[in-house]
Design a binder for these strands. Structure first.
Length: 675
DNA sequence: TTAGGGTTAG
């Protein structure tokens, strides 16, 4: 594979241009070790034999059983050999079995084993090798090994030791314990082997640890190993690990290839830095390299999520030009982000695929049914449902759950329950998710008591309840105005160690304030904040309004100021309700105080508020208040209550729909190689 | 068919 080091210049800060071309001792080491690695790694990785058995076949070649040991020990004076010679023991493997029997049955074997076998010299390699050979339980083997290490005069044959480690790589936890034993010197290429094994099991943090260990001994793995680790980081969604590994790669002078670049593109996507990813893809293609398809697909997915639809089309064109054809996965990524207003575009792409003789699969149907339900097109969802079944695709728990959820959200409670029962009739299991879907579905349809029956049913059926289960119940009861039940479920949620969601806390606080329990609402707000939970911005407005309604004006001002200082912008109705309430109580100074905030935040003074103010002013007839009001409305009031006024447009990204029309994506389908 | 895809709160 040709190197594409020229692309390094693109990455700027993450690169070390001087090291990319220099040959370091580590590079030489890497090359040497790579040869060794390739000769051994495959065999070791795919071996499923008893590790100890394999070890003995390596170092202790030719020794297979008591007779072999007996031969080996001829001329040597170890105890076991002597016992064999004296015919007191006929079979060395029997002794080994007895040793394991003691270890297995006696918890204090470490203190008794020497006296149990007074004539055995455990530090003799021939003896302990035979004992090790007898055991297939890796943890027990490790225990025995660690005990051996503590014996005076023990010296483990390093070759045997490394072979043992190499075979133990398959058992990650045990291998890790060996790694933790810092006195144990492992051949670097075993560490590399171990790294690859960890990558396959997606233990990226452990992979990083082993890379650190390799760094300590100045060993550099092969490009393939680096790429495996990068790929593992991407699969785990860990952009940070990608950058860390890549930085080290550059330090070691390992030249990247197209697979490395593919991982970097995906890391940019993970960080939502899609334009960087898009640019890097462009550079890679310009250099004459084509990344694997998943890189294109992930980039398409990220671009779609960010509303960059013209770039999605451009990436698909680039794919086709480079003979990397979009397939069902690629189109699924496209259809996945065709939600909301773009649902019909997703349907168009879907229909176009079928027209051209391709067969959408269950995942495709599931996603599209979900999108249609979200877009309130239940009829369209049913049409797809039946089309899918007629096409011979059997819905699974994903498909059922998506549609049951969609039906609940569209108010079709009976249909949702019917579909759920159909799922059960087909032998599909009930899960936490299926229960949560129904509990939430019933709650949003004001049937919280039925949801509670399901909540209890979960317990009876031993189905685990999670934070979503409890939060749905809190919200369900709060929305019905039943604060005591909502509080009960909040309490239960906390007892289980779950986090309350902002939405459920907001609902609860709103209901409490509506019912006049403002102090209780305040207590919950403060309590949750203290516990580190975010009660959500929406919870502050009802508290402020609730306080004003009760006439606690000073307290209201305190909360309002807190709200503004926290850059939580009260909604227009909150301001209006506050002003109306204060005018009603003829607290004009306070009403103007609130009005001041409202105007400063860019809200316009509407007619209804003017009436309230004028009405109150006529009653009070205060010249002082009138002047203040005029100043606020004219904007001549120079005193700013806000240090940093909150900008209305801050953080908003306008979304254009110029690419939505004209269907650039579905027009590409004809050029694909779907099969 | 060789890196992978779809589900529940807001």
């Amino acid at each position: 594979m040709a190197r594409i080091s020229s692309i390094f210049s693109y990455l700027g800060r993450r690169q070390n241009p001087t090291s990319a071309h220099s040959i370091t001792p580590q590079t030489r080491n890497r090359n040497l070790c790579t040869d060794k690695f390739s000769a051994n790694s495959e065999d070791a990785l795919h071996s499923h034999r008893n590790p100890i058995e394999v070890i003995t076949q390596g170092r202790m070649l030719g020794i297979s059983g008591a007779n072999a040991i007996s031969e080996e020990l001829k001329g040597k004076p170890p105890n076991l050999g002597r016992k064999l010679a004296e015919n007191r023991v006929t079979n060395a493997s029997e002794i080994a079995k007895e040793v394991w029997n003691v270890i297995r049955t006696c918890p204090k074997w470490k203190t008794t084993i020497l006296s149990d076998f007074p004539s055995i010299s455990f530090t003799d390699p021939s003896v302990y090798s035979e004992i090790l050979r007898q055991q297939s339980d890796l943890f027990m083997t490790l225990q025995f090994y660690l005990w051996l290490r503590s014996l005076d005069g023990f010296s483990f044959d390093p070759i045997l030791c490394n072979e043992m480690f190499g075979r133990l790589v398959e058992a990650k936890d045990v291998a890790k314990k060996f790694l933790d034993d810092r006195e144990f010197e492992i051949e670097p290429w075993f560490l590399e082997l171990y790294t690859r094994s960890l990558c396959e099991n997606e233990s990226i943090d452990q992979v990083l640890n082993v890379f650190e260990r390799l760094k300590e001994i100045g060993y550099c793995g092969s490009l393939e190993t680096w790429n495996m680790a990068l790929s593992c980081s991407v699969r785990m969604g860990r952009a940070d690990a990608v950058w860390k590994l890549h930085e080290d790669m550059v330090k070691y002078g390992v030249a990247s290839d197209v697979n490395t670049m593919g991982c970097l593109i995906q890391a940019f996507c993970l960080e939502n830095n899609v334009s960087k990813g898009y640019e890097l893809l462009h550079q890679v293609l310009k250099a004459g390299h084509v990344p694997v398809k998943v890189v294109f697909d992930n980039l398409i997915s990220a671009l779609g999520k960010n509303g960059k639809y013209s770039e999605v089309s451009a990436v698909m064109r680039k794919m086709i030009v480079n003979n990397c054809y979009p397939d069902i996965h690629t189109y699924h990524e496209v259809i996945r982000f065709c939600r909301g207003e773009m649902t019909n575009e997703g349907v168009r792409i879907f229909d176009e695929l079928k027209k051209r003789g391709h067969f959408p699969n269950r995942v495709m149907y599931t996603t599209l049914i979900d999108n249609l339900c979200e877009n309130k097109d239940v009829r369209g969802a049913w049409r797809l449902w039946f089309e899918m079944i007629e096409g011979g695709i059997i819905p699974n728990e994903f498909t059922y759950n998506v549609f049951v959820n969609g039906l609940f959200r569209n108010g079709s409670v009976d249909e949702a329950e019917k579909l759920h029962n159909e799922m059960l009739g087909k032998g599909l299991p009930e899960t936490t998710i299926s229960f949560n879907t129904r509990i939430h579905g019933l709650c949003i349809n004001s049937r919280v008591e039925e949801a509670r029956v399901l909540f209890e049913e979960m317990n009876k059926k031993d189905i685990i309840r999670d934070s979503m289960t409890f939060n749905s119940m809190i919200r369900g009861y709060a929305k019905q105005g039943n604060t005591s039940e909502a509080m009960y479920f909040l309490d239960e949620l906390l007892k289980q160690g779950f986090e309350p969601s902002s939405a459920s806390l907001v609902s609860l606080i709103e209901t409490l304030c509506d019912d006049g329990y403002v102090n209780e609402a305040k207590r919950i707000w403060l309590d949750m904040s203290e516990k580190g939970f975010n009660p959500g911005d929406g919870a502050l407005s009802p508290i402020v309004y609730g306080l004003s309604k009760q006439g606690h004006i000073a307290e209201m001002n305190k909360w309002l100021q807190y709200m503004i200082k926290s850059r939580v912008k009260p909604k227009m109705p909150t301001f209006e309700k506050l002003i109306e309430c204060l005018c009603g109580a003829y607290k004009l100074d306070d009403a103007l105080f609130v009005l001041h905030y409202m105007v400063e935040m860019g809200y316009l003074l509407r007619e209804n508020i003017c009436y309230s103010l004028v009405h109150a002013l006529c009653k009070v007839n205060s010249h002082h208040v009138q002047t203040l009001l005029l100043n606020i409305v004219d904007g001549t009031d120079q005193h700013s209550l806000l240090n940093e006024p909150v900008s209305q447009s801050e953080g908003l990204t306008p979304c254009t729909d110029e690419h939505i029309h004209g269907s650039p994506i579905s027009s590409l389908i004809g050029q694909s190689a779907l099969s």
